[in-house]
Amino acid sequence: MNLEYSLFPGCVSSAREFSCEISARKVFEVLNVELYDVEDFTCCMPACLVHSFDYATGLALTSRNLCVADEFDRDILTLCVSCYGNLWRAKKLMSENGDLRRRVDELLASIGRSYQGKVGIKHSITALYEDIGPKNLKNQVSKPLRGIKAAPFYGCHLIRPREYLFFDDAEFPEKLDELINVTGATSVLHRERTGCCIGCGSFFGEVAEEAALRLSVDILESALEAKADCVVVTCPYCFLQIEMGQLLFKRRTGESYNVPVLNYTDLLGLALGIEPRELGMNIHKIDPSPLLEKIK
């Protein structure tokens, strides 16, 4: 497989949740996919934060990343669904003509860049599904994770809005379930599968943090109702939120949920025979050992 991508790890992967990046790098290495680091990438400049301050400037900053990616003949690979959705949003807005595009072009020209929109934008999940494919992945699984029930958490910006994201259906998505089943684990149906972790919203103060905590609890309850052994996420922010939610809950009430949170690449990596430590699972805050025991 001669696949290669420009890696766009995003702020959370880079600065807070290392496990996601460790896991992704290892799994793609084993799958013979080359991930290149690009020096001039910055924060994706999310719309909810940066564009909220100034629309045109924010869009120019996001598009700047796309211009940088265009220097190479490779698609972008994001690890975080917020980056994924935000970059696609910028791509869509930049494809429309009008005052906004003109304004952004001006700003980009002032740094000697011009937006071409050449490279594609992928996420680790979309690359695994579309560029490698579930069948290929299944063939490489050497340690099927039989008996494991996983509750998928799709992540808002992987599937919404349908206006410019076409990977999977927004109301009844199926592809992450398929990818989970490929590893030998069983994906369970639970009510929060297309829910929100309020990662993007947690920028906004104590009230939002309270909301994030309550929402994590809801997600965990949903997974437990479906008798899941773990929650499988596609984004370091969702990862962070659902782990932190458990820790905060414990601090407040003394009770522990102890539901391991896994990046999808963790699940895939285990099924490919990779050691948990190599996937960064030793730095998970919620101990995944009960799950790992079950696999053995």
Partner: peptide, 10 residues
Amino acid sequence: LCAWCYSCYE
């Protein structure tokens, strides 16, 4: 406080 999840938009 909007968390930008796009559910309402959809």
